[in-house]
Design a protein around this nucleic acid. Sequence first.
DNA 1: CAATTTTATACGCTACATCGTATATTGACA
DNA 2: TGTCAATATACGATGTAGCGTATAAAATTG
Lengths: 82, 82
Amino acid sequence: MEQIARTSKQIGAAIRRRRRLLNLSQGELGAKTKLRQATISALENGEPGARLRTLIDVMVALGLELVIRERSKAEGRIEDFF
Amino acid sequence: MEQIARTSKQIGAAIRRRRRLLNLSQGELGAKTKLRQATISALENGEPGARLRTLIDVMVALGLELVIRERSKAEGRIEDFF
DNA sequence: CAATTTTATACGCTACATCGTATATTGACA
DNA sequence: TGTCAATATACGATGTAGCGTATAAAATTG
């Protein structure tokens, strides 16, 4: 599944979804990444001050990757078609 | 163009490529985002400690978006086919 | 090559993520 | 509803991003 994430909240939501899909608790993910459970919690809740390193470490542990592309027009915004 | 970015260096490189495509200097991009030219420089050079907020602000200013997806197998790694 | 623009780096400062540890709150389920 | 697991939050400590400002180094262009 491909998640567009334009805000830190959307990034956090995508990570949480993936973690749950893998049946991991925040604590278990924290163990894999050497991050605290509290740090995982903050990231999933969309703290915009989180560090890139944190995001990347978590994504690696979850088998995720980032794609950077030109902002798509009208993605999920039906009004833009009119 | 779609850039896979698994490291902060790759993220930085994608941003730099896009900025140059738009014919912006780091200073001009900094003005748009209210970030210092030095901060843009650090981000483009792949500082892993950069904040999510910084990345997102820059991506918005450049008309970019993130996609989060399952790590693709064998992307650029021919050995994985054997 | 010289002049100019662009990018990288430095210093002291403030803000805040992350740490370890601990607890409070919430959620799931018998 | 009560118990246990999971998540959110708290505290003081430490590390470091980003700030303003300035300059050094590199790249561009005439």
